[in-house]
Design a protein around this nucleic acid. Structure first.
Lengths: 365, 365
DNA sequence: TTGAAAGCGCTAACAG
DNA sequence: CTGTTAGCGCTTTCAA
């Protein structure tokens, strides 16, 4: 409909869709472009009748303002880049989702860039993002460990690290509160009357492993419980290690644990399998709590696994808000740890109230 | 360095980074903007000395062309949108990665949009993407099933469905060849001498379930093998169902299977667990093959699981190439099925050559 | 070989 | 209240 220029398209060549511009709208409405702009953006003083005429002309033409032109003018592109150091993994996804959800409310688009641990690729991505004049950049990683600062030469483009950190205290980083999450889990076990609580976890080169161990110890300490020797078992992030570690725990003649707090859900699954295979009932004989609340895993264990949730979606949303803040020119910096929560299922013998219940450490602002 | 305009920044207000424009470069090099443009884009005839002077001026100023301005002029934004019907899941990720990898080679940015099964959100995303003048849109879904066509009013913006389809044969869809993948798996089992092959799978409302079943039957048929009664077991996509189905198979007095082809890896995992718990050795007594090659799952089963890989990364890359083709103005349409491959591990008793070996059905163009 | 100028679509400042 | 105009940063004629 309408008299859009319908030029013939030579085959095999880029076609520029014949979209109507604000000029077309103005012409159809019988006003100037300036007036049309005012009408469409609802600013400036305008006679109601004129405004309506413009609006309906716009509707008739299917007019949609060109953000590119708008951005060129305003010096703001309404886009941000999301660079994932490693490929998009299990942890990155909910963060992405939260971020995108938050930013799309402000009409901001998110470019996804995957650097797959390749510094050169990362640099290329940064180049491209800067070329596209992104208003900000979010960096995520596999685990919330330290990484070199993103090499962005251009000043004025805020960079936010989520689920990752740098060594520079000036940078703004958002990570889950691993220690608090661990404390939450262990306190829950203690609250259920468990006294001999073991901790099977991943490699100590991960900061998360150390923080969760600290949380485990803090909870024990506060309750006046000892940490039996050999009950802290760092290893690797796998089911196999979970099984092995259980074997190790039971082999010792100092007595078995009555609860196990695992560094992630895979380990927990291995542990539960090993316990069952040895005839130890979960949760009656041994209660088990995992970490990550990876649903597909936590719900497949027998019995379903109580687990710490890092609330990554919320982390992502928070990242969005923080970035908006930075984009508005506010200085934001330093490390912020967001609270984890505990998702209770059957593996620790709590009165699981039908559906999984969540319990939060403290309220996020 | 250089005399960039260094205006003072009022706190709490958007800061427009003081980036240098081609004007600045031209000025510094002592030429006109037109000349600078030619020099930087390496077109037109220019004295070598001039070109060099411009280049070095650009370098000195840290000049980076503004894609927004470029796009406004060219009518091409060098961006595409990726809309995921459901949230970004296990299947979407490798597709995204492949797509992004492919497109970033052409300096094309990918906007990620998550519609979470909400038609209204989806529509809003489409609006935003069109506002940003994306050059194309890719749609993905949870499983490669039919969905309504994307409501894109604007003509000239190509839409490509990946791992999803519409009812309109005119749309361009890219999906994995489920039937071929299933055939591959079952033929492998037959090649290893298995004769009584069962098939435990998901709900029949998924097209994938039907296609994989067809592939299973086709392979049996070609080998002249019967499909024993009760050996085809549709159900749900869970470990629990895998265990249950195995119980069902063994309960029947018509004799147990000597191999099970599972509709996905979770079912396979449940099946393997159930077999082990009943003292049936895998692969000696019963060989098992899964589908999806979800590594974290396939490698955690005992023994590690042979599984069909849908090559989703390749699918994503192929999607990128196809979209580039469409963006170039070429008409591409219809449904294309890309081959799956088989990743051999220990669960079916093949001579697993150390690392997992891959076997492809046919070569993709 | 280089410079000047028009224009991509939109906004904002200034006239009328 | 409405129209005119000058850019945003870049490319691309057309002149010189």
């Amino acid at each position: 409909m309408a008299d859009g220029p319908e030029r013939s398209r030579p085959m095999g060549q880029a076609v520029r869709p014949a979209r109507s511009t604000i000029r077309d709208v103005a012409r159809l409405a019988g006003v100037s472009v300036g007036t049309a702009s005012k009408a469409l953006n609802n600013n400036g003083a305008l006679r109601e009748e004129t405004r309506e005429r413009v609006i309906s002309a716009a509707r008739e033409l299917g007019f949609r303002p060109n953000d590119l032109a708008h951005s060129l003018h305003r010096g703001q592109s309404l886009t941000v880049g999301l660079i994932s150091t490693d490929s998009f993994g299990r942890f990155t996804i909910p963060i992405m989702e939260g971020l995108e959800e938050c930013l799309s409310d402000s009409r901001i688009g998110v470019f996804m860039c995957n650097a797959t641990d390749d510094m050169e690729r990362e640099a290329r991505h940064v180049e491209q993002l800067l070329g596209k004049r992104v208003d900000g950049i979010v960096v995520t990683a596999r685990r919330a460990d330290q990484r070199p600062k993103l090499a962005v030469a251009t000043p004025g483009v805020p960079v936010l690290y989520v689920f990752s950190q740098t060594d520079d205290p000036e940078t703004c980083c958002l990570v889950p509160d691993d220690e608090g999450g661990a404390r939450l889990a262990v306190e829950h076990l203690i609250g259920l009357g468990r006294r001999r609580i073991a901790h099977i976890t991943g490699p100590e080169r991960f900061q998360a492993v150390c923080l969760r161990r600290d949380g485990y110890r803090a909870a024990l300490g506060r309750a006046g419980l000892p940490e039996p020797e050999g009950f802290y078992l760092p290893g690797v992030w796998s089911e196999g290690w979970g099984r092995e570690a259980v074997a190790e725990l039971l082999r010792s003649r100092k007595g078995p644990p009555d609860a196990i707090f695992c560094g992630n859900d895979q380990i927990a699954r291995g542990a539960i399998d090993a316990l069952r295979e040895r005839g130890l009932l979960v949760p009656d004989a041994v209660a088990v709590v995992g970490f990550d609340n990876w649903e597909i895993m936590a719900e497949a264990t027998r019995p379903p696994l109580t687990s710490v949730d890092m609330n990554l979606r919320t982390l992502g949303r928070e990242a969005g808000l923080t970035l908006l803040d930075m984009m508005a020119g506010n200085e934001v910096r330093g490390l912020r740890r967001l609270p984890c929560s505990l998702v209770v299922r059957d593996s620790c013998g709590a009165k699981s109230t039908g559906a999984a219940a969540a319990k939060t450490l403290d309220d996020s602002p």
